[in-house]
């Protein structure tokens, strides 16, 4: 479905993830974060950047992977993105939701 985020027309999946990462901008990320009740800080952006790099490099994302990343520990990950940190951070990063085949 189409939506307007930060003044840009974007395509979203039924659960609100960007369909096409090339449409992503920092402003759009900020809007998506707001919908999740998150006010972005520099630390948030560092994590988002790391997630985008992982996805670009085809690395599977998991909470355990965060632990090994050296970027932040899991406690901080939960503190930055409370609830389902992976689900929420991927949404803000404009990358696909972690999913299975069905």
């Amino acid at each position: 479905m189409e939506a307007v985020l930060a003044g840009n027309k974007v395509n979203l999946t039924e659960d609100g993830y960007l369909v096409d990462f090339s449409q992503w901008t920092k402003e759009i990320g900020t809007e998506l974060a707001k919908e999740e009740g998150i006010e972005m800080t520099d630390r948030h952006w560092e994590v988002i950047k790391w997630i985008q790099e992982q996805v670009k490099a085809d690395n599977a994302l998991s909470v355990r992977g965060i632990k090994k990343s050296g970027v932040l520990d899991i406690k901080e990950f939960y503190a930055l993105f409370p609830g389902g940190p992976l689900k929420i951070s991927t949404k803000i990063a404009g990358v696909p939701k972690p999913k299975s085949c069905i």
Partner: peptide, 16 residues
């Protein structure tokens, strides 16, 4: 499950 649901794709979620 570590994922957001038992089913994670829209069509499968609706059907199953």
């Amino acid at each position: 499950t570590p994922l957001g649901g038992a089913f994670t794709k829209p069509k499968a979620t609706a059907a199953l």
